[in-house]
Amino acid sequence: MTLLETLTVILVSVGGLFFLTGTIGLLRFPSSFSRLHALTKADNVGLGFIACGLALQAESVWVAMKILLVWGVALIAATVSAHLIARFTLRAAGGSRRTPP
């Protein structure tokens, strides 16, 4: 196994660990907010590790940049959906007056 392959295995495994903790949080945490906290933090970092690990295996710089772009777009989508879910939960709990945005 070359150095690059070892690095990929390490990065992807670390990413998998983040996903695992995120999923445990999703399943075990009591409220929507704590679940969001687990998912948005752990999964996005996990995806970043996996993307970096795979980018090392890409055949060209362009492919590597596309993989990193996927991560970037996923981050943006996750940010907005987490915001919308949190906002909805807050409003459903009667906190609408405290949330102008």
């Binding site: 943006i76 907005v80 915001h83």
Partner: peptide, 15 residues
């Protein structure tokens, strides 16, 4: 409307 919707569309639509 939630503050993040407009920036999301401004980014996502052309992409």
């Amino acid at each position: 409307e939630p503050v993040l919707v407009q920036p999301l569309i401004a980014f996502i639509a052309p992409m």
